[in-house]
Computed example of a mutant assay.
Amino acid sequence: MFVNWAHYLVPKISFFLSLVFNPVFVYLIHSSKHVLFGNYRYLSYFFAIFNLCASAADLLIPVAVFYYRYTFVTLVVDAMRSEQGEASIAFRCSFISGTYGILNIHFIFRYLSLKSNNIIKNYFMPYGLLLSVIYVLFHMSIWAMIDYFCLHSAPEMRDYIRIPFRKLHNESIDNINFVAGLFSEASPDIVQRSWAGIVLLTMIASYSMILYFVLGYKIITGLHIESVTMSQQTAQMQKQLFKALTIQTIIPICVSFMPCSFSFYGAAFNIGFMNWVYWVSAVAVSMFPFLDPLAIILLLPALRRRSPRASTSPRLRLEKYNDLGCDVMIKYLQIKF
Rank of each mutant, 00 (worst) to 15 (best):
P62C: 03
A54I: 01
Y111I: 04
S113E: 08
S31G: 06
V73F: 06
V24K: 02
H34L: 14
I119M: 04
Y100G: 15
C93R: 10
F109I: 09
F95E: 09
V63H: 08
S32N: 10
S44D: 12
F109P: 13
S132E: 13
I29D: 06
A64C: 08
S88C: 09
P126R: 01
S94H: 04
G85W: 00
D78Q: 01
V73T: 12
L114H: 02
Y42Q: 15
Y123S: 15
P23W: 12
C53N: 09
A90V: 05
S113C: 06
I29V: 13
V65Q: 02
T71Q: 10
F21V: 08
N22M: 03
Y100M: 13
L60N: 02
V76F: 08
Y40E: 11
S88K: 11
N117E: 04
I120V: 12
A48K: 02
S94K: 14
Y123G: 10
A87L: 12
I29L: 14
P126M: 12
N122Y: 05
S88M: 11
Y27H: 07
D58Y: 11
L112V: 07
D78S: 02
A56N: 03
S88Q: 07
R92D: 09
A48R: 03
F91C: 00
A79K: 03
I89T: 04
V76Y: 07
T74V: 14
L129V: 12
Y123V: 09
T99A: 08
S97H: 12
P23G: 01
A48T: 01
H30V: 10
Y100R: 03
K115G: 08
Y42K: 08
N39M: 11
D78I: 01
G38S: 13
I49F: 08
Y111F: 11
G38C: 11
G98K: 08
F50L: 07
H34A: 12
S31Q: 15
Y42C: 01
R69H: 15
L43D: 13
Y40W: 11
Y68C: 06
N118I: 05
F37Y: 15
N104D: 15
Q84I: 09
V26I: 12
I108M: 10
L36I: 10
V77C: 06
Y40K: 08
E86F: 03
P126Q: 12
F109S: 09
F21Q: 12
T74M: 07
R69G: 00
L131V: 15
M80S: 03
Y45C: 01
I105L: 15
I119L: 06
N22A: 00
L28G: 02
G128V: 09
Y42V: 05
L129N: 06
N51C: 14
T74C: 09
Y67D: 07
Y67G: 01
L103Y: 11
S32D: 07
L36R: 02
P62H: 00
A64N: 15
A79T: 00
R110C: 07
S88W: 13
G98I: 02
I61Y: 03
A54P: 03
S94W: 07
R81E: 03
D58K: 01
V20W: 11
M125D: 07
S31Y: 14
G98F: 05
I102P: 01
I29F: 14
I29R: 00
D78V: 01
G101K: 01
S94E: 08
